[in-house]
Nucleic acid binder design. Structure first.
Lengths: 115, 115
DNA sequence: AGCCGTTATTCATTTAAAGGAATAACGAAG
DNA sequence: CTTCGTTATTCCTTTAAATGAATAACGGCT
């Protein structure tokens, strides 16, 4: 019986054994950039604020430089900002991801895991 | 501060949302092939027999054809055998994995996640 | 029939991850 | 000095995953 298999490549940027960036985190960062708010970004992704906060905390601690600056209080209650470094690694990740996708589409046709 | 980041691509062969093959399962299958025994393969991988058994059960159920034939009783107490189809997808996975590794080494140098 | 080493399966326990609720802290603006 | 919406953090509960122990089932061999 033929089955509809598919090949997936997941891309991770690690430091040691810890993941700084993978698809989920990148998505979260982009949402933060769009909304300027961690809470709203989390909401948009149907993720608890708590989880999102831990996620950002981890990224900031691991990476070479700060990726997201969080400020509380003030005009809109607080604000979340992506740093220049943050924007840099986001676009690098996206660019590399595109290359990966091209690689998959070029190579996967050579294989047939049904036989 | 410069950190020693690394880029990892994990390769998965899925059917729908379920993973038939990924690096850990392939390693287990190879050990089974070497030893002819699920128990010994699990032991070698420092994995509980229980977990290994579930793993194989899942692979066999998901894949197009049987990948591992398990028999109990008999000369050596029992035996685990990789089918022709099993050997085929193992070598396909390894071959594709090699291509992926080459791709990584060619592309990762273009990126610097420290800046 | 009994032995042996493996496969097959259940049950209870432990450990880890995820989630939710609640509340404090903050600072601009009115 | 109060309000407002967000960030920050704790505590408890729930859910899921991993582990371990124990035991049955099997079949060639002596």
């Amino acid at each position: 019986m033929k089955k509809d298999y598919n090949i997936s490549l997941s891309l991770r940027i690690n430091i040691g054994n810890d993941t700084v960036l993978a698809s989920g985190k990148v998505e979260l960062l982009i949402k933060i950039k769009e909304m300027g708010s961690l809470r709203k970004a989390a909401e948009e992704m149907k993720m608890s604020y708590r989880k999102a906060w831990f996620s950002i905390h981890k990224i900031n601690n691991l990476a070479s430089e700060t990726v997201v600056v969080l400020k509380r209080g003030g005009k809109n209650g607080g604000v979340a900002t992506i740093t220049d470094y943050g924007n840099s690694i986001i676009s690098q990740y996206i660019s590399l991801r595109k290359d990966v996708d091209i690689f998959i589409s070029k190579n996967s046709s050579k294989y047939d895991f049904n036989k």
